[in-house]
């Protein structure tokens, strides 16, 4: 291996076509996850993401068994679960939290049992859960690209609606917007982002890519658009660096990418200006200090 400052170190892996495709994939996935993830974080929908991720798992297995398109199967099942979520959450005596818990564990169990019935090995389960970015085909890449375009267009077109519904649902309703329509759109976007991510970081770790970059960005800035931009940058950075690390040291790429995003979040939590733990601590000390003197 050549030196850290030698450009060859970074260019040489690019000669491998699978590495080039992988880099493109993590970039696209980072963009779409950070974009949708920003709204997930702002609305506190982490658990909904968790539920949709499990639903996608069942959908992928079903599609795999029926020989259909994995992405299509995943999406159809995720939409079904999103709809059930709405119906169940409204039932008295259940509560949204429990409804989500029941639905996602049910769909995951279904996926596991079907995978069993199909007699595919443990390796398939591991691939679905942890992803394999270096196995991304050109076709997968095209599908991911399409997801990115659709999501970007949807967010740009509906930006102000998504923001109003997130910030002040009561006002949104008073302005005549149906919350179920806009929540539905967001759920579809989450499902799309998770679908795009499952090939690269895997179904289980996709949630991390949805949450960690957006949360980190939120700690670092107080404006919405810069927050989204920074989340995208962080997600793409984690993806690219994680992929290189995975290439050089032969560790699985999905966990490497997720650990990097997690490390970024940890750093921001500690050292972010104004919001960070260290910053708050210093300010508190200063306040105590000045109070002791006066």
């Amino acid at each position: 291996m050549s030196g850290v400052f030698d450009p060859v170190t970074y260019l040489q892996p690019l000669q491998q076509p699978f590495m080039l495709r992988g880099l493109l994939a993590v970039t696209l996935v980072g963009i779409v996850c950070a974009l949708v993830g920003s709204f997930v974080v702002l609305r506190g929908l982490a658990f909904v993401g968790e539920a949709l991720r499990h639903a996608l798992f069942a959908g992928v297995v079903i599609a795999f068994l029926m020989g259909g398109s994995l992405v299509g199967g995943a999406l159809i099942f995720a939409l079904l679960v999103a709809w059930l979520l709405g119906v169940l959450g409204r039932q008295q005596g259940i509560g949204e939290d429990t409804a989500i818990g029941v639905l996602f564990s049910a769909s995951f169990a279904l996926g596991i049992v079907l995978l069993n019935v199909a007699r595919t090995g443990a390796r398939d389960l591991t691939t679905i859960l942890l992803g394999n970015v270096l196995g991304v085909s050109t076709l997968d890449l095209a599908a991911t690209g399409a997801v990115v375009v659709v999501t970007l267009v949807a967010v740009v077109v509906c930006f102000k609606e998504l923001v109003v519904v997130a910030f002040d649902p009561a006002l949104a309703q008073a302005q005549g917007r149906s919350l179920s329509v806009w929540d539905g759109l967001l759920f579809v976007l989450i499902a799309l982002a998770l679908t795009a991510a499952f090939q690269t970081v895997g179904n289980l770790l996709a949630l991390a890519l949805l949450l960690a970059p957006a949360t980190t960005a939120r700690l670092l800035t107080r404006r919405l658009v810069p927050m989204i931009g920074m989340a995208m940058l962080l997600a793409v950075l984690a993806g690219v660096i994680g992929l290189y690390i995975s290439y050089w040291s032969n560790v699985p790429s999905g966990p490497a990418i997720v650990l990097l995003s997690g490390a970024g979040f940890g750093l921001a939590l500690l050292f972010a200006p104004q919001h960070g733990v260290v910053w708050s601590f210093i300010q508190r000390r200063r306040l105590q200090h000045s109070r002791n003197h006066s």
Binding site: A46, E50, L205, L207, A208, T215, V258, L259, G262
Partner: peptide
């Protein structure tokens, strides 16, 4: 959000 990040990172 913290729950979602921590468990996925731990799992990774």
């Amino acid at each position: 959000t913290a729950i979602g990040i921590f468990y996925t990172v731990a799992f990774a």
